[in-house]
Simulated assay, not measured.
Amino acid sequence: MDVAVIGAGAIGGTLAALLDRAGHRVEVTARGERLAAIAADGIRLTGRWGEHRARVAAGERLTAAPELALLCVKAQDELGALRANEPALAGVPLVVVQNGLDGADGARSAHTGPAIGAIAFFSADCPVPGEARVLVPGTLYLGSGTAPPTAEAAEAARVLSTALPSRAVANFAGCQWTKLVVNQINAMPAITGLSVQETLAEPRLRRIILASMREAIRTGRRAGIAFGSLEGMTPLALGVLGSAPAPVGSTLLRLMGRRLGREPVLGSTLQSVQRGLATEIDHLNGAIVARARALGADAPVNAAMTELVHEVERDHRFRTPHEVARRIRLP
Results as ranks from 00 to 15, higher is better:
D2K: 15
A4C: 09
I11L: 14
L18D: 11
R25V: 10
V28Y: 01
R34E: 13
A36Y: 09
A40D: 13
R48A: 15
R55W: 01
V56T: 09
A58K: 04
P66V: 04
E67L: 00
A69N: 03
V73W: 06
K74C: 04
D77N: 08
A81C: 13
A81M: 06
N85E: 12
L94H: 12
V97T: 12
V97R: 01
D102A: 11
A110M: 06
A110Y: 10
G113L: 01
R133S: 15
V136T: 14
G145N: 12
A157M: 09
S161H: 14
T162H: 09
L164G: 11
A190H: 08
A190V: 04
I191G: 07
S195G: 07
P203F: 05
R207S: 15
R207C: 11
L210Q: 06
E215G: 04
E215T: 07
E231H: 10
L236H: 15
L238V: 13
V240T: 15
L241V: 11
L241A: 15
P247M: 00
R258A: 07
L260F: 13
S268I: 02
Q274P: 03
R275G: 13
T279I: 09
I281P: 05
L284F: 12
N285L: 02
G296D: 04
N302K: 02
A303V: 11
T306D: 05
T306A: 12
H310M: 02
E311W: 07
P321C: 12
A325M: 00
